[in-house]
Nucleic acid binder design. Structure first.
Lengths: 221, 221
DNA sequence: TAGATTGTTAATCGATTAACAATC
DNA sequence: TAGATTGTTAATCGATTAACAATC
């Protein structure tokens, strides 16, 4: 079963598969079953098989999946087999941290330009890249065929920066500012907001009892 | 309709509501309807009403929601009305960036301790906090009633750090390492992995046509 | 009163999981 | 051949959305 419309949930699991497959490959494991994969990644094996089957018949009945072949296929699906240039806007602490993560990203996706509006930042160097003024954003994006923008500016500037990235021709945005960006439908936006992560985590803190089906707790009991 | 089991999707939207409500409050808006909220946050109004109704009757028919009251209620639900201490493990670039975000978190959630295994880091200062060695983690966590741990160490150390946090009595973890952590069921783990975010973003880059229902494109056509 | 908007039930939609024939 | 495991269909589960009576 090829194509149809693939749900975002499926797409978000692909990088997770890829990461673990790369680890297996490094360990020289050549074959893996959906069951092993599921166990390691806390996912249902049927779900993994189904996810992969959306894109092709990658496995062999009775055998499992060839690790190298599956890595190749997932990289193709995610377009990680082609060079993808990324721009980072906001040369603060977080921007600095992210630009260092280039090491973690496989060769083909790379932050190739950093921008900031703050005069003091411009011209300084971050991880071998010179911070450029916002005025150069449009030209740099076009000249370097930059397709993804990462936003690490304060929230009140984020929408403005997004607009500039979009009019420069960027196709997708990874937004770290705690705000819901508005953009045309053809622009893909992912929000990576750890304030939200942390706050929703607080919900699950246990204040006393709740579901203490365990017989463990003896304080307060 | 109170309680039942609340889905994670619902819990994850609460901080989003809260953030925008705080903005409204700052602008001295006193009342808001689910429709306005939905428009601003790109959500279905019925969904917002349903989400809130899980926790109580916070609105008034014909009127909408009182902004201040709803803020208070959501803060209670998320346990943000009580002081929650957080520990950060991994004093690298990302850890540094996160510790600065204290400013963005409301008063009640705070990073109160930073740890690192690297001798060169220990004793240095990050955002007014002295980096402590891992050996002190257990005691510091207990003495300061730290309930949440943030992991910003390299992937190969992440599981080990998680184990230490858990045995020190932490209740929840925000994990930035690109790995699936194993933990007992009562420990809540959220993964904030932007490698995954970026890679799944690449999938949506448009290589040519796909769903060009728009008549815009004339190059390549 | 008329208009607006909630809380909630019912309908829809979509995603996950189970089951199994095909086959290595 | 017997055992293992895929790809896929059907069953289940859960989340979103529509609709509307209640009521401010």
């Amino acid at each position: 079963m090829k194509s149809d419309k693939i749900s975002e949930a499926v797409v978000r699991r692909l990088p997770v598969y890829l990461r673990y497959l790369n680890e297996l490959h490094k360990r020289e494991v050549t074959t893996v079953s959906s069951q092993e994969l599921g166990q390691k990644l806390d996912l249902n094996p049927a779900q993994i098989r189904k996810d992969l089957a959306y894109f092709g018949d990658f496995g062999r009945k009775g055998i499992g999946y060839d690790v190298s072949y599956l890595i190749e296929k997932i990289r193709q699906i995610l377009k990680l087999d082609q060079r993808i240039n990324v721009a980072l806007v906001g040369a603060g602490n977080l921007g600095h941290a992210l630009s260092n993560y280039n090491a973690f990203l496989k060769d083909n996706m790379k932050i190739v330009a950093v921008f900031d509006a703050h005069p003091a930042k411009i011209g300084t160097s971050i991880n071998n890249l010179t911070v450029q003024p916002m005025e150069e954003l449009e030209r740099t994006v076009r000249d370097n065929a930059i397709r993804i923008g990462i936003i690490t500016v304060p929230d009140f500037e984020a929408q403005n920066v997004a607009n500039q990235l979009i009019s420069a021709g960027i196709e997708a945005i990874l937004n770290f500012a705690p705000i819901i960006l508005k953009a045309p439908a053809h622009i893909r936006i992912h929000t990576a907001d750890f304030t939200t992560d942390l706050q929703s985590l607080a919900y699950y803190l246990d204040n006393g009892k709740e579901e203490s089906a365990h017989e463990e707790t003896q304080v307060d009991g």
